[in-house]
C-alpha cells in the first residue's frame, strides 16, 4: 500500500466541495449506517416512515450546507437508497 505522504494544503486554492443529498425513501431499511458514518454529522433519523415502516434519514437542522460530497453515505448504503451530487461552486469560492 502506498503510504500517503502528507503535504500541506493551500486553503486558498483547495475548496471544500459541497454536496446535495438525494434519497429514495422507500428503499431505506433504517440501518442508520449513513447517519452514523457521515463525517460531518449531516444526517439524522427522521420521524417520517417509508412504506415498510422504516425511518429514513433526514438533514440535521443547521447542517443544511455541511455536506462535503464525500459520498461515504452512498458508498455504505446497502439499499441504493441515498447518494449525493456535487453542488457546482458559485464564483465567490467556497
Amino acid at each position: 500500500m502506498r503510504v500517503f505522504d502528507r503535504q500541506p494544503l493551500n486553503i486558498d486554492k483547495v475548496h471544500i466541495p459541497r454536496g446535495q443529498v438525494f434519497l429514495i425513501p422507500d428503499r431505506c431499511k433504517g440501518c442508520e449506517l449513513c447517519i452514523h458514518f457521515c463525517p460531518e454529522g449531516v444526517l439524522e433519523t427522521s420521524s417520517g416512515m417509508n412504506v415498510k415502516g422504516y425511518h429514513y434519514p433526514t438533514i440535521v437542522s443547521g447542517k443544511e450546507n455541511s455536506c462535503i460530497h464525500c459520498e461515504f453515505c452512498a458508498l455504505i448504503c446497502s439499499e441504493f437508497a441515498i447518494f449525493t451530487l456535487a453542488i457546482p461552486e458559485t464564483t465567490n469560492g467556497g
Partner: peptide, 10 residues
C-alpha cells in the same frame, strides 16, 4: 438544502 431531495433513481 434543508431536506434530502427525494429521488426516483440511484
Amino acid at each position: 438544502m434543508t431536506e434530502p431531495i427525494l429521488a426516483e433513481h440511484h
